[in-house]
Nucleic acid binder design. Sequence first.
DNA 1: TCCTCAGTTTAGAATGGTTATCGTTTAATG
DNA 2: CATTAAACGATAACCATTCTAAACTGAGGA
Lengths: 156, 156
Amino acid sequence: MLTTEEMCRKFRALGLKVTPQRRFIFQVLEGNPHHPSAEAVYAEVRAFIPEISLATVYNTLRELVDLGELRELNLGDGKSHYDPDLSNHQHLVCVRCHAVADVTCDIGGLTLTPEQSRGYRLLGTDVTFYGLCPACQQQADWPGQALHLWGVSPAA
Amino acid sequence: MLTTEEMCRKFRALGLKVTPQRRFIFQVLEGNPHHPSAEAVYAEVRAFIPEISLATVYNTLRELVDLGELRELNLGDGKSHYDPDLSNHQHLVCVRCHAVADVTCDIGGLTLTPEQSRGYRLLGTDVTFYGLCPACQQQADWPGQALHLWGVSPAA
DNA sequence: TCCTCAGTTTAGAATGGTTATCGTTTAATG
DNA sequence: CATTAAACGATAACCATTCTAAACTGAGGA
């Protein structure tokens, strides 16, 4: 994502207004490494603008995603998370507590041949790793093999 | 997923009962290449058991996922889809209409080094390709670059 | 075959994240 | 300032999924 000031300029250039609400949302997101959910962004922004509406947060996040300034992540906990880091990286998600670690690994070899892509125009590739974070490995209450996740092929 | 008869045996062996509802759900799923949603399974099963409850479909799907007999997929349309094909394959999803094509590509090289995995115990890796299906490429109403998806890095 | 009971089903209510509605307010332009 | 399209806030609506509680039933044993 661009810096807050750059985002403000970009919004104005697109005919979108820069409101205090939006500026604070930009600031909360700028450089944020925590992959916050909409609710988490809402909570942070309310420290500055207590009367802000959750709908405004959702609207602004959506706009940033549509502008390609924000990545929307599915971490398997049923809510969207947001990542202002647009650099080429992947995520390693704890299947128990949904903690996230950024990882960077070369996915250059991951391409589809023309016959594999079946006429689709390829736009992007998502690679997500699933595992147990260090803290959750200590807990005994994990049922083991059960990986009721979204399309996970077993680890090598 | 196992065949319907094998699933019935497996359920009994685990102390789970085999009801008509469950047997028909097994049959709808067996060899099903359409990545159906819960609602879609419900619609199909109702052709045989009109009085079945949607909750029963959800419960049975959940059980199969927990048993490792069914893969739960997130195709970006806000609902879970189910895939009885447990073989090592990936999915190519249309970002506009959410059509899905199975693809098989070697993800053997996709591993994390110990320092990359940061103490996580790696359990699985999800690779999903996003694109525009042939039919949707014909439509002019696609806004172009907008990829408000779940964590997609741009195509090479 | 019949009993028994843990496990299952059902309808409908509840939940939770997200989006839509709509009347009011406001940023940006001139 | 005046204008106006855009944005805001409050809250209702939406939708996939899960929960609840009462009624039902599969499967092993008497």
